[in-house]
Design a protein around this nucleic acid. Structure first.
Lengths: 197, 197, 197, 197
DNA sequence: AATGAATGAGATTTCATTCAT
DNA sequence: AATGAATGAAATCTCATTCAT
């Protein structure tokens, strides 16, 4: 299968960046199906033909978006992993909980992307594995008694809490209430404290 | 605005049922945008014109699906509300947690439906209000000390836990692990016990 | 080709009348193409199946409408023909000019009907022949010196003046101005006076 | 609201021209409602997608047709306005009367277009205002004694006479007779002579 | 005979993708 | 290599007409 072309020259890179940004924005606004290639090209100020040079089809563009998000995510996790050993458990709990919220802008597009059509399994699974694996790693670093399997189970819960918090904060249309974010934070802290004891 | 027609005669009712079932199935598989009216009609063994006779457009069909789900949900909540006062807290926690799982088949379509395009707000919000309200009600029945606001906050958390469990069980492509469902169950029980203490 | 069924019993006649009235109204409002058989049936308070019993298709219904108009037109012309010999020329000029205006309600539907799809030629031509013939007849009665051909030519002009006046008065969207109806009346009078001299 | 695209390259212009011509022809034959976009595309030898590239919907295509006609009309009126001061009244009367006939081919489509569904009011009214205004202008140039209102009234009559003549000549299915065109010409001449005296 | 549910051909419109320039 | 006009498959929706009940 064809893949996205990585441009060699400077101007090409700028264009690719513009297209990715536009893609993220448009997909965030209109969803994957709702977004049109023409719309993305227009938003990026790029001719449609140029867009197709770099991303031979819509799916590959979306893949590239996921890829880009993974880079950001990795960097953010690096930071957490460095801090984790030297901070109290509540700090770690919050760091993971708020982790999605900090990548905010890219995030909305991601949500729309990962929530859409089901042929995504591969990219999505990879992405999830990365996240789960690294969070589990962080947990075991702090509490070596945790088995690998248990760390993964906890990581799954934390990841879901993170998604919920992200949804709360990004104003998405999910069950919510004024006190819910705080409630979730407390729950998440006490849960992690309990599991890392 | 036009609404779904309620068929008068026997065969009409069967057809509507078939269409709804097909609609739920196809939307569950392909998402709201991915699903086509022709595809749904074919799956239901109904000519496209018949489908449009009962559901004048795609959105109304989706509305009808939500509506049907709401009926099921209400019935299930009735049962929980009756049992709740006479059972231990863990039972209530589990009842709410597993509540989505029991409606399984309809559920997948619902998720796709409620997760899709953002013009849904009205139906979605109504649906969510119903759920939140009733769960909060159940909680306050058991623990009258809970303020209305606090009950709502807890209900929001429970609702999200339920959604997660539903996702776990329905095989949706979400972060998961072999031990995660049990982990979530324990977390949910201890959380509710703590809040209803 | 099938034709409209003429109902024998009393209730059937009432229904046919209702359908025709509804047909005239709906076609007047939405045009021939815009009007739907279902809409006409609904307006007539008649089930669609019943409508199709009397008028096997849309075209036949339209034909029946034209037919009905012809009856009205004939009656109105009878009156003019009786009065014409005993009145001044201006009276006759005005009678013909205002003739279309008096049948007002039916008229709008007629206009839409006669202006639409071009397969109407037969009905339309018959209708026009009737009108032209009778007006020419009235003219020659008053001025026997007029040849048959000349009478027809004058009748054509009068008929067009009538159509214009009808359009003026019925508020249709045609070139118009506050003084135009009076201007037309003067013109028409002096024209007829000149030709019947 | 979207508007018709003006093509940049040579072949695009040819295609637009072909589509407009086809549109005029098909609408002339079948009326606005009767004409189908597919039919117009086929007649123009253009794929349906191309047609929609230039004219994003049926209404915009029709608008473009009206626009194009307005250009022709303006040019023709320019000529008349230049000649009018130096010619006898009969010449002016004839020039206006025959004015529609000279634009013949485009005309049929126009009639169907302007006669159709009533949402046209805006374009139609503009078009009519243009015509009326310019004819009134020509009249007052010749006979400054005419008040503005009177000039408009006369212009309305002339415009209707023009429409009738156009219908006569274009073979449309209207009341007609062998001598009618000449009769109308005589009437129109004597009417204008009387009013400009 | 009367009803109105059912039918499906056909209309409008969109948009991912290609390819001539 | 870059552009954006061109393409046409496919989606949504309508409605005249039929025919089972």
């Amino acid at each position: 299968m064809r893949r996205a072309i990585t441009p060699q020259r400077r101007p090409g890179k700028a264009r690719v960046a513009a297209v990715l940004e536009a893609g993220a924005a448009v997909i965030a606004e209109q969803g994957y199906d709702g977004a049109t290639m023409a719309g993305i090209a227009a938003r990026a100020g790029a001719p449609i033909g140029s867009l197709y040079r770099f991303f031979p089809n819509k799916e590959i563009l979306a893949d590239a978006l996921v890829q880009r998000y993974m880079v950001l995510v990795n960097a953010a996790l690096d930071v957490i992993q460095q801090q984790a050993p030297h901070r109290p458990t509540d700090f770690v709990a919050d760091a993971i909980l708020d982790f999605g919220t900090r990548l905010h802008d890219e995030t909305k597009a991601m949500v729309n992307l990962l929530e859409s059509r089901s042929d995504w399994s591969v990219k999505r699974r990879k992405f999830r594995e990365l996240l789960l694996g690294r969070i589990a790693e962080i947990l075991r670093q702090r509490s070596p008694a945790l088995t690998e399997a248990a760390a993964r189970d906890v990581a799954v819960i934390l990841l879901h809490h993170m998604k919920i918090m992200k949804a709360f904060k990004s104003g998405r249309d999910v069950p919510n209430s004024p006190g819910a974010p705080d409630e979730l934070r407390r729950l998440n802290r006490s849960y992690l404290a309990d599991r890392l004891r």
